[in-house]
Design a protein around this nucleic acid. Structure first.
Lengths: 337, 337
DNA sequence: GTGAAAGCGCTAACAC
DNA sequence: GTGTTAGCGCTTTCAC
């Protein structure tokens, strides 16, 4: 009596093909030397039985699970989504699956997840987080680890993140090229690394382009702060008006354009505005739509995962901080028509 | 010579404790009958060796992986994030990990992921998607499947989703209680199930509360559409003005409040506005902040995962559509002060 | 070229 | 109570 309900194993395939289980394994994985005829016979048998290899058994014997863990320090959020997409892109191509672990900013929880991932014998881990700020390293692990977006504080780790400074430079150079000469930088809290790096890029690029840094306003990553900042900028004395603003986020930029419009300042005629993030929701709802710096998070995810795969395959993925360049996306808020 | 670099196995623990591997397994998993003293000795040995069980081996022998797949039909997005959080909540408690699979709206890709999940012997699958609209069932699988947020078109499947109609009712009853008598419904595309269900709830609740349905405007899920709709409402003749608007999303509600303000209509003095989603970004940036219907996506995720666990443990998780009630969150856009 | 046999690390049935 | 044994389903030497 044949057990039709059971899932077929290599043994079943072997039996049907009239070979041994070992041969089936070789045929299916393209290992060793097999006569073409035999291989085909095995393939046919597997096909006929709709054989699907049990990955768990394979993992146990191979000592490799084709699985990587994705661990967030803070939580999954808007920034991690495109990252996940990119990571899945790279991994999926390598038949590698992703195990989700949301650390929720709790070190204990994180610790627990790490041992769990190790017990599950994942081949590697991508550590990520909402913001590119530095975080404590997860420490030396017996498997490769790559930090994506958020930086590890251990220079021996590999971090793949965006180039905040270069992104800011892009924005300033764009404004300068438009003929803007008195610029302001409106951004998030000073204690965020991104805020400072973008400020650095802003100031250096301004100096390089010979344009004036008229104001630097640091606050929060919110629309409300953007509106407040707009008020501040609009109240500057006649001769000291800014004609270009680089914002540290699209939310700020959106609030700023709203604030400027309501204060009677025309964007982009009188003032050009550039945001950061290329977040569709903000960028499209703003009036005018926002010119912004795109950090390329999907590509960032792809890059980090592909380096992780390299490391898993015994290659050298690099170390230290790899900062991927941002792109400028032109829309209505910067170019006067 | 001791191999300090190697990960300890049950055998190592057994040897150190002077028992057999079988006994170690029992001691560690609380199975069978063991003398307390023996159990303790094993536990001590495990502790000393920092023994961590290899989950892959365990899975192979137990025939259970303590892993579930999370498959999105469309893609991971704003709506799936809180869902994932809830799912992880429930599963984490049961020591179950989550495997990510982003179908990207591609049926082939989805099919591929499903066989991959089956080959990896996951214990169950949560199917999800951005919107509560119906989708093709993944079909009968040898493991339990629960649909979260998005509905399966097979009534034999279990779907856990939000109660769109009840949410709409909540909004209308709130408006009615405020004394509003001429209401409008501004929402997304007609072909979205949510649009229609919320409209149904809106109309029934209005009838029930004895208030007039003055207008129904269907368009897109965008701020721009909200602003357009505001223009349409503001242009209604003097005697036919609406004094309460229920919006199908917070984005629409946000655009609507912006549009009304710019048209000189005071919110909430002249018109009360209620949104849907309780999406922090929109709700907080709007002026005034938005009263809205919260679909409770985290709880929805929790509920679906916990039902999946029930099914995995051989229980009866239920079938058909389970619609969880929404909550009303009061903020500035509805209650005149 | 192919088969036989051992083993990945754990659990579970059955002796003792 | 505890040890022994036999798998779970696959890969991988190593004979032949």
């Amino acid at each position: 009596m044949v057990r039709n309900d059971a899932v077929p194993t290599v043994r079943d395939v072997a039996q049907l093909a009239g070979v041994s289980p070992g041969t089936v394994s070789k045929a299916l994985n393209g290992q060793g030397q097999l006569r073409e005829e035999t291989r085909q016979r095995v393939l046919d048998a597997a096909e006929k039985l709709r054989f699907q290899p049990n990955r768990v058994a394979r993992s146990l014997s191979e000592g490799r699970t084709y699985t990587v863990g994705m661990l967030t320090s803070d939580s999954f959020g808007r920034f991690t989504l495109p990252l996940m997409e990119g990571i899945e892109d790279s991994l999926g191509a390598g038949q590698v699956s992703t195990l989700l672990c949301d650390g929720r900013g709790d070190p204990l929880r994180e610790r627990h997840y790490i041992t769990e991932l190790l017990n599950r014998r994942v081949d590697g881990i991508v550590v990520t987080g909402r913001r590119p700020d530095a975080r404590r390293t997860v420490g030396r692990l017996p498997i490769p680890v790559v930090y994506a977006l958020c930086r590890s504080d251990d220079p021996g780790d590999l971090t793949v993140t965006m180039d905040d400074e270069q992104g800011a430079r892009l924005a300033v150079e764009h404004l300068a090229a438009l003929g803007r000469t008195r610029l302001a930088y409106v951004s998030g809290p000073q204690h965020h690394l991104s805020t400072r790096l973008r400020q650095q890029g802003f100031e250096r690029a301004a100096a390089g382009a010979g344009v004036e840094v008229a104001d630097v306003l640091l606050g929060h990553w919110s629309e409300a702060w953007g509106r407040t900042a707009a008020g501040l900028l609009a109240r500057r004395p006649e001769g000291a008006r800014v004609d270009g603003v680089f914002c540290g986020s699209d939310q700020i930029a959106r609030g700023l354009t709203d604030g400027l419009r309501e204060a009677g300042v025309r964007v982009p005629v009188e003032v050009s505005v550039v945001g950061f993030d290329n977040w569709d929701v903000m960028v499209e709802a703003a009036r005018p739509t926002l010119t912004t710096v795109d950090p390329g998070l999907v590509r960032l995810g792809r890059e980090s995962a592909s380096r992780l795969l390299t490391a898993i395959d015994g290659g050298e993925p690099g170390q230290g901080v790899v900062a991927l360049p941002c792109r400028l996306v032109l829309r209505g808020s910067s170019v006067p028509t």
